[in-house]
């Protein structure tokens, strides 16, 4: 290979200032002495400069939102997997849990996740409340501030006897008490990430928790329908119930709560919006459809984002001859909210 060819192939590297010093020196010497390569160098330089005139284009803002929307639910799914109610529920699986999160608590750091491991336990089908000993063993009672617990819940712990604690509604603190092998109460602000995760977990893993999911939804509504505690993750957990729960009564509670949440929360991300649209389109219970369309209407009325699919679903709903007339009228009203802005 001729020296000219070697030098010419190195010209882009020279332009990018990426040649090692020795090669750079050699190349420059050659260019100075070889007219043809000198001319090539100048024209390459010109071209390199022209290429620089291509300006960088800003990434559309929606792309960021779209990415984060897709990633956050994924995160939730990984950390706290949702499973449909199995045929044989958790009690039959006879799983108990040992809490070993103490390290995080006692060291005062929240770096360590709440680690939970399964061990056998039994629960009787009939459990009189009076005079009966609980079937679980309370080795000790712990109160953990939510700030000391990692928001990552590992494994799928069998949290039982979940109770919502709000001793003083005015202090901005709530608590969730539950039994593992210890009786644990996690307390903190409703906005604390660990508290949100815990409640989302309780909502989405009914087969792993008790009492019933519908009760958990009521707790969530009490707190998170207040604007200052509005939370997207809670909305997404409710959306998951709306989409996956087989019992109509529970779905009604879920959508009723969603409808009461501030619109900016329900419309933040496609998960909730899509669940509402699906409910509007397909839920056999007319009350679920009414509440879904009312939630969408609230989103529209508050200027929050609805996508083209939502708009088309509302249009189709208005035109759907066999739909309950009230639902159709509500769908039309939801569409008209765009107009009012």
């Amino acid at each position: 290979m001729s020296e000219c060819h070697v030098v010419r192939e190195s010209l882009p590297l020279l332009l990018a200032e990426s040649l090692d010093p020795a090669s750079r020196e050699t190349a420059h010497r050659h260019i100075e002495t070889c007219a043809a390569c000198g001319e090539e160098w100048l024209s390459f330089k010109d071209t390199w400069q022209i290429l620089g005139a291509l300006p960088a284009v800003a990434v559309p803002a929606r792309a960021r939102e779209r990415f984060l929307d897709e990633v956050m639910p994924r995160q939730q799914a990984v950390v706290v997997p949702f499973h449909r109610r199995p045929v044989v529920r958790w009690v039959a699986q006879a799983a108990g849990v040992v809490l070993v999160a103490g390290a995080a608590y006692f060291t005062g750091h929240r770096a360590a996740p709440l680690r939970l491991f399964s061990q056998p336990a039994t629960v009787a089908a009939l459990r009189p409340l009076v005079g009966a000993q609980p079937v679980y063993s309370i080795a000790e009672t712990r109160v953990l501030p939510a700030t000391a617990v990692s928001p990552n819940i590992e494994g799928r712990p069998d949290i039982q006897h979940v109770q919502f604690v709000d001793a003083d509604p005015s202090d901005g603190q709530i608590g969730v008490a539950f039994d593992l092998t210890s009786h644990v109460t996690v307390t903190g602000s409703p906005t604390d990430k660990s508290m949100v995760r815990l409640l989302s977990y309780v909502l989405q893993n009914e087969e792993k928790t008790s009492p019933a999911r519908s009760q958990a939804i009521d707790w969530v509504r009490q707190t998170y329908s207040q604007p200052q505690y509005a939370n997207t993750e809670i909305a997404q957990a409710l959306a998951g119930i709306l989409r996956n729960e087989q019992r109509e009564g529970v779905r009604i509670r879920a959508v009723d709560t969603l409808q009461k949440l501030p619109a900016r929360v329900t419309s933040n991300g496609e998960v909730t919006r899509d669940a509402l649209i699906d409910a509007l389109k397909n839920d056999p219970n007319p009350s679920v459809r009414i509440k879904a369309v009312e939630a969408l209407s609230k989103m529209a009325g508050s200027g929050q984002a609805l996508d083209a699919e939502a708009v088309d679903s509302l249009r189709q709903k208005v035109a759907q001859g066999d739909e309950n007339l009230y639902v159709r009228v509500k769908a039309a009203e939801a569409l008209s909210k765009i107009h009012q802005q």
Binding site: L54, A58, V59, A63, R64, L68, Q75, V78, V79, N152
Partner: peptide, 29 residues
């Protein structure tokens, strides 16, 4: 480690470069 909270930071660092590379490569926004 399973915590995706840095996603937005990484996106902010590199999305411009990735987008522009793909835009130039594919000529389709």
């Amino acid at each position: 480690g399973g915590d995706f909270s840095p996603a937005s930071e990484i996106y902010d660092r590199y999305s411009g470069r990735i987008y522009n590379f793909a835009l130039r490569f594919l000529k389709s926004a």
